[in-house]
Amino acid sequence: MDFTEEQVERYSRNILLDDVGGTGQRKLLDSSVLIIGAGGLGSPAALYLAAAGVGTIGIVDDDHVELSNLQRQVIHFTSDISRPKAESAAEKMRLLNPGVTVIPVMERLMAGNIVSVIKDYDFIIDGTDNFPSKFLINDACVLGGKPFSHGGILRFYGQTLTYVPGSACYRCLFQTLPPRGTVPSCGEAGILGVVAGILGMIQASEALRYILGIGELLTNRLLYMDQLTVEFRKLNTKPNPNCPVCGENRTILEPVDYEQPACSLKEGPAAKVNL
């Protein structure tokens, strides 16, 4: 468990924590996390995970930085406009902590490439902005036995849950994509930047605590937050036996691509959630 002087000092506040210590810091340095989406959720998650010393961080995004992103995607700066988001994010993470390995992936994850991209990572953070991606990531992680954190945001609201093999997956709660046009996207409905920030950090916290093996993950629980009232509610869930990807009679046996506009989310976890 040798640390360099620089590491001891850089990570001293982690090491001071009884639940982390040198042992925990070593786990972080030896771990890898993949962040899918270098946007509103991915930005804070990427920065905090790099800062905490997660040894290898993959960052996936095939988009380019736009001026309208900067209101919430804080890893990108004005001078980054038009740069690939994955590249921009990787640069910031390396500047923050040269001691972590950052792997930018400038691709759109589809059924064809997702399995090979996620296979080397210990934990996946879903920071995407559209339902096809969210279901794709869920299916790929469940099928590949990868723990991941789901996150979704809209206006002032956000929701997140964590999947580890055996717990309820995203599809256990939401069997299929909402019909086209029933749910507005961020582009249509708007989003308060801090909502993305808070939720992205909760996802980063899930990743860290998963790696460290401490505390309680948001498994079998859906956290719903309202930043107008600053209310956080946890809804208990359980694996759905009829889930098409992890239930008793599975119908989805490999990742599937769906088509939908970006940045869509139901307003709240209401109707179709199986609790």
């Binding site: 468990m1 640390f3 001891v8 000092e9 001293s12 090491i15 001071l16 210590g21 040198g22 042992t23």
Partner: peptide, 14 residues
Amino acid sequence: CPLNFVKVKLILET
């Protein structure tokens, strides 16, 4: 402080 304690803690863990 607290780097001195951090270092002690690291040694104690081993």
